[in-house]
Design a protein around this nucleic acid. Structure first.
Lengths: 222, 222
DNA sequence: AATCTATTCAACAAATATATTGAATAGATT
DNA sequence: AATCTATTCAATATATTTGTTGAATAGATT
């Protein structure tokens, strides 16, 4: 094998794996799977794809070895093959947000038009925890909370929040979080909380970003 | 804008930027540009592309804002738009090397068949530097050395190494480095050095990996 | 063993990406 | 102003990617 053949093969393989990520639906699937495992049906529903189409995209990811499967009863559950997959997604996400003004504008405009609140970073949240006096609120669906959540967080899924406000302390600041920077559950939560007179902000990043930094988490279920 | 429209747009933009990296030639160009700036002609030569083809790929990268240009005399020089581009490439590279057995096998087989030597990581090299007693050898073309190199490294481009061996100390260990893990200049250098009786190993990573960690570098020229 | 159900496959049409060729262009140099 | 030169553009053929439809399959459950 010549030097050129070697290079062509290596960059070819790397391009193949990159191509497997280079699709809007597949990126969305990767972000979803960063929360834990999901069946094809659940993935299709969350991403608004047909089952067959979701399955095809999952085959692409599986062929590239970015996702694993395991069967439980009638369902086949998909999950990220390992943490480097999330790291690559995170690097692309950060490159995009920083490089492509369109994305930053989209996020800002969408947030501003609906919920114009401040947000805190993971580092900010760590400080607040050290100082005590912060309630961490996980507003993802309960199943995702059970698969793993920030240590000491309270789970109130966004669609139950309005009815379960009394579970939250009115004095201490609340930081709500969800799946990631493009997930709006936390924004919706902050809107509800502020309106009800609570002191609340959202975490900019999501649970997987917390987890990848090896910060304290709790797992209820496997 | 609905939540779904927002998501479709954000993931769409992120997929566009990912697509712009998802091509073997463009990945190779990104790795090359991580060494510094190059003209279209130089890029075409290094990557074995026609000028027109290289130009087209560069347009794709420019549209995605992954590269910048600046003109000097008759030539247009391309360079990476910022360090996040290299970080994303690095994340994809590491994902690929770890996930895709083919790549690891390609690299190992190619190396083993030609130069079966040990290698050191950046962390290993830092330790060796702290202990003193190591000569760092940059075997990239001199122009790339001038654009930036590991602090205190000696420059002997690979095609001059055989004739300039006497410039190197015979007692202290030599660590040779080049552009990155897929660059074989350093392997060729170690082969020459060992044969001539020197104690030598290669750095697994390349100069850009050293630079991104904000380890000490020197720049001769801009 | 028969049935049921979640998932995958196969086939197609439409859209997108790629390499090649030769012409066009922008900006420096003379 | 004319010329030169590095780079880009335009047009083309070919290959790859994508979504849709409906049928096929593998593995549970009855």
């Amino acid at each position: 094998m010549t030097k050129r053949e070697f290079k062509d093969k290596v960059y070819g393989e790397l391009a193949t794996i990159t191509k497997s990520m280079a699709n809007p639906h597949r990126l969305e699937i990767i972000e979803l799977l960063a929360q834990g495992k999901f069946s094809v049906e659940q993935i299709a529903e969350q991403t608004h794809l047909s089952i067959a189409n979701a399955s095809q995209h999952l085959q692409v990811l599986k062929t590239a070895q970015l996702v694993d499967i395991n069967r439980q009863g009638n369902f086949i559950y998909y999950r990220l093959a390992n943490s480097n997959v999330f790291k690559a997604w995170k690097a692309l996400r950060e490159l995009g947000v920083e490089r492509i003004a369109t994305i930053e504008k989209l996020v800002k405009d969408f947030r501003k038009s609906k919920f114009d609140f401040e947000s805190v970073t993971i580092d900010d949240l760590i400080q607040k925890i050290e100082l005590g006096k912060v309630t961490i609120l996980d507003v993802r669906p309960e199943s995702e909370f059970k698969k793993g959540h920030i240590a000491n967080a309270i789970s109130i899924p966004i669609d139950q929040l309005s009815k379960r406000l009394k579970e939250l302390p009115k004095r201490t600041e609340i930081v709500a979080y969800c799946r990631g920077p493009f997930c709006v559950f936390a924004d919706e939560a902050v809107a509800i909380l502020i309106k009800a007179g609570y002191k609340a902000t959202r975490l900019e990043e999501g649970f997987p970003d917390w987890q990848i930094q090896e910060l304290p988490i709790e797992v209820s279920m496997n």
